[in-house]
Design a protein around this nucleic acid. Structure first.
Length: 877
RNA sequence: GCGAGAGUGGCGGAGUUGGUAGACGCGCUGGUCUUAGGAACCAGUAUCUUAUGAUGUGGGGGUUCGAGUCCCCCCUCUCGCACCA
């Protein structure tokens, strides 16, 4: 750097400081002006625009993109986004080619609800929300490459999603089948499980029914094994998320067994993980929806069975699978035969048997399964013990609960006396040989139903023709666009199903009048591949530009909420494998490292008169309306209903974006829940002001000594601390994401700078220390650091300067403080030469007065010296 | 019930391989400067204590010269899954 240039810049900056001082009150730095200035600077200079390819190593960091809701950004968003931003800024300073994009998960129900409530078109509502949320994000100073932004409701995105669907159809990875769904007859629409409240429609409060509907599915079960097995290789994922995914896939080993029905050719197939208990099967439980129910039921039982089935069908899936449900059943009048004993066993329907797990039929072994035990007691059915635990003798008459542990087989013919674990294999093999059943693997994971009777989603590109059947929309006709002139009332089913112009189409095969599919995709489909589209967001030949996608993927660091641990993250993994098998990308897994951020929590407050209170409705612990004392509630997740929320806009207005960024990562590590605390925010603001003053109070001194580069080795405690801090912050930020401790160590360095005696500073060392503070903080609080960096006489932006490196030589100390323990208890501390040998150290330690006191008259057993840390004298007695 | 994680001052949290428990911040106490302080700066702040002492990381055992950290048992909390056959 030319010294003339430096003088010029400093000179100009000085006048600037004076003006600022006047306008900013004496004590605080003017974050408003500074943050605006640097956000403009980054924009004009295209600082964060990313180029594909290049010599630098690539680094792709991604936030889970937000839904553009009407409520705008909440304070939970910035925490995760800031964490990613810090990583990105750090990686850029470290010489990586960083991809850091942002976009919008823009299809979804809230847009339709807004349309129903205020008549706004979902598209207009969505794009307006995007506008205002983009402004909010920009105020935080996140270093996104905004040129890659897209919304999933853009017809361009739909185009390529529809194409992926067509390819999946060709590969038989997408198919149509009938399945049971929650159905509200009033609203004429399918409801997601979450939209069913107490068995009723959340909107009209009508009872929800189960209904069979034709639905499109993705064959995710085809990938069940790969999705399961690869969880072992996802070393960069939290164990918790992997456990949840394994649990969700729910692979279990067992066998399928055929039970023949007495007096009928029909066979009932069951899946069981306990073939060892087969001799103890004393009845059969079928799901009420089981296809054989109609043929099995006897004339006498028919009325009762129908009543039961009707009752069960009124229950929604959530209630149906809740543990609270009372176990109920009904006898069908039919009997089937135990394939091993030939014993006749009654066939029941039971409300707890689910048609979509296993085969929808369960062989009931009351002695060894708690549900079957309770069921048998309720309906007075036989209980047959077939496993005796070691050293006990079970009696069906006196059993209080089922015996589910291990033991030895009894009452089991040729298999008596074998341990039940061995019997699983032996009986399964026997069934196999006798063709009575076969070993089988079952998954809890179901194929992914993607049809939604909604308007605001990606149209499924299918045409139904009376003569040609189900015909995919030809590629040249993509995208199938949503019609804009729709009336959304919330009644009478999907608006698309009533939109004649949309529905009516000529069959692509025969040209005859045909009908379009009116369902749209589940919005999870969009979020299953958006991360890949960021590599080439404008590519117009295919969903992905293979070169760009293969350069950027997989995402190196993905950050988002734990609430997506299963659905979104599993679907995204599935889609990546599908895209790989379609030849569109090489990666098999989308996200190498995953960080799940905690929730943002805050204490709730309420008034006995006015209910929950917003923080601004409480002053001095009292309700501002009536003056009653506000009661403090639990600290819990911020939510509108409890009014324990902080508006990020207000926060930024009051303290600035840098303070908001700093606090959200200083209070707790990002994966933990963050407890919001106004005083903590103040503390961070105070710290930034301390940094600001540390620079300005020393500008004169620093100016006199610009040559930091000439420093070598140990010159002072300050230089040592400076380099220790660089090392510590680098280690904390890189891979560990312990931003809170990184910030804490910079605070320590600032405290040391403040503790320097006036007039005794070494200007070059001081300059190095102060510049280091600014550079280390740059990823965390970029605006103030850019400003300070400029005021320190540097041009061209602080990121260009790169990340500081530490000099081990500067950290070498000639003396070190070591702890002296006697029998493991701290007794003294001694200052010794760094390279002291053990014998010498021992001598000094033993000579310490307080040590001598504790070893006096005792025999020294041994002395343990740990280099650089301590010496422990072990004495007897 | 199953799975995962956690339990450390008044509070949020530090504590890479076992090696000075409580970094850093908040709060609190005292001081300096001020017309003033809800600004700034400095000092103090785990508990008990006459201490150069004792105790202390949910409880109880163990391994070790030495345990917040490793092992065993138990308790509590959070999250996820849950009639899964």
């Amino acid at each position: 750097m030319h010294s003339g240039g430096l003088a010029y810049i400093l000179g100009r900056q000085k006048t600037y400081i004076i003006t600022l001082d006047i306008e900013m009150t004496k004590e605080h730095y003017n974050f408003d002006t500074i943050e605006k200035k640097w956000q403009d600077y980054w924009l004009t200079n295209k600082t964060f625009k990313t180029e594909d390819f290049g010599d630098k190593p690539k680094y792709y960091a991604l936030d889970m993109f937000p839904y553009p809701s009407g409520a705008g950004l909440h304070v939970g968003h910035p925490e995760g986004y800031t964490a990613t931003d810090i990583i990105c800024r750090y990686k850029r300073m470290r010489g990586f080619n960083v991809l850091h994009p942002m976009g919008w998960d823009a299809f979804g129900m809230p847009a339709e609800n807004a349309a129903i409530e205020n008549g706004t078109h979902p598209g207009k509502w969505t794009y307006e929300n995007i506008e205002s949320m983009r402004v909010q994000l920009k105020r935080i100073g996140l270093s996104y490459d905004w040129s890659r932004e897209f919304a999933t409701c853009d017809s361009d995105y739909s185009h390529w999603e529809q194409l992926i669907f067509l390819r999946m159809l060709e590969k038989n990875l997408a198919y149509k089948k009938t399945s049971n769904v929650n159905w509200c007859n009033d609203c004429q629409t399918v409801l997601a499980n979450e939209q069913v409240e107490d068995g009723c429609c959340w909107r009209c409060n009508n009872p929800v029914e189960q209904k069979e509907l034709d639905q499109w599915f993705f064959r995710i079960t085809e990938y069940a094994d790969e999705l399961l097995n690869e969880t072992e290789n996802l070393k960069g994922w939290p164990e918790k998320v992997l456990a949840m995914q394994r649990n969700w896939i729910g692979k279990s080993y067992g066998c399928e067994i055929d039970f023949s029905v007495k007096g009928s050719a029909a066979k009932i197939k069951v899946f069981t993980t306990r073939p060892d208990t087969l001799y103890g099967a004393t009845f059969m439980s079928l799901a009420p929806e089981h296809p054989l129910v109609g043929t099995l039921v006897s004339a006498e039982q028919r009325a009762e069975v129908e009543l039961f089935c009707a009752e069960v069908s009124r229950q929604n899936k959530l209630d149906r699978t809740s543990g609270e449900l009372e176990k109920k059943g009904v006898f069908t009048g039919a009997y089937c035969l135990n394939p091993l004993t030939g014993q006749e066993i009654p066939v029941f329907l039971a409300n707890f048997v689910l048609m979509d797990y296993g085969t929808g039929a369960v062989m009931a072994v009351p002695a060894h399964d708690q549900r079957d035990f309770e069921f048998a007691q309720k309906y007075q059915l036989d209980i047959q013990v077939v496993i005796q635990p070691e050293g006990a003798s079970l009696d069906p008459q006196t059993m209080q609960t089922a015996m589910t542990g291990t033991g030895v087989l009894v009452n089991s013919g040729d298999f008596n006396g074998i341990s039940n674990e061995d019997a699983k294999e032996r009986i399964a093999s026997y069934l196999d040989a006798e063709q009575l059943g076969c070993k089988s693997i079952n998954y809890r994971l179901r194929d992914w139903g993607v049809s939604r009777q909604r308007y605001w989603g990606t149209p499924i590109p299918i045409i139904y023709c009376d003569s040609c059947g189900t015909v995919p929309v030809p590629e040249k006709d993509l995208p199938v666009k949503l019609p804009m002139d729709v009336e959304i009332t919330g009644e009478g089913g999907s608006p698309l199903a009533r939109h004649q112009e949309f529905l009516t189409v000529a069959c692509p095969c025969c040209g005859a009048p045909a009908r379009r599919e009116s369902d749209t995709f589940d919005t999870f489909v969009e979020s299953s591949w958006y991360f890949a589209r960021y590599a080439s967001p404008e590519y117009d030949q295919a969903p992905l530009d293979a070169d760009a996608a293969n350069y950027w993927l997989p995402v190196d660091q993905y950050i988002g909420g734990i609430e997506h641990a299963v659905m979104h993250l599993l679907y995204a993994r599935f889609f990546t494998k599908v895209l790989r098998d379609l030849g569109m990308v090489k990666a098999s897994e989308p996200f190498t490292n995953l960080l799940t951020q905690g929730m943002v929590c805050m204490e709730s407050q309420r008034c006995s008169e006015h209910g929950w209170l917003y923080p601004e409705e409480v002053r001095d612990g009292k309700c501002v309306t009536c003056g009653r004392a506000a009661e403090l509630g639990r600290t819990e997740k911020m939510s509108k209903s409890k009014k324990n929320v902080v508006d990020p806009n207000a926060l930024i207005e009051r303290y600035g974006a840098d303070t908001a960024r700093l606090f959200s990562l200083f209070a707790a590590p990002p994966e933990k829940d963050l407890e919001w605390n106004e005083q903590g925010v103040e503390g961070c603001y105070r710290f930034l002001n301390r940094v600001w003053r540390a620079v300005h109070d020393n500008l004169g001194l620093i100016e006199s000594s610009p040559e930091v580069a000439s420093l070598t080795g140990t010159t002072s405690d300050l230089r040592c601390k400076t380099h220790e801090t660089i090392k510590k912050v680098s280690a904390d930020v890189d891979g560990r994401f312990h931003f809170n401790t990184a910030i804490a160590s910079v605070m320590e360095l600032v405290n040391v700078i403040y503790g320097l005696k006036k007039g005794q500073e070494q200007p070059a060392v001081l300059r190095e220390a102060i510049e280091t503070v600014v550079r280390l903080l740059a990823p965390f609080v970029p605006h103030i650091c850019e400003e300070l960096w400029q005021r320190l006489g540097h041009e061209g932006g602080i990121e260009r300067q790169g990340w500081p490196s530490w000099d081990e030589a500067a950290m070498v100390k000639s003396e070190i403080e070591m702890v002296v323990q006697v029998n493991g208890k701290l007794r003294s501390k001694v200052k010794v030469a760094i390279d002291i040998d053990n014998a010498e150290l021992e001598k000094i330690a033993l000579a310490e007065p307080n040590v001598a006191r504790f070893i006096e008259g005792k025999q020294i057993r041994k002395v343990i010296c740990v280099a650089g840390r301590l010496v422990n004298i072990v004495v007897a007695g």
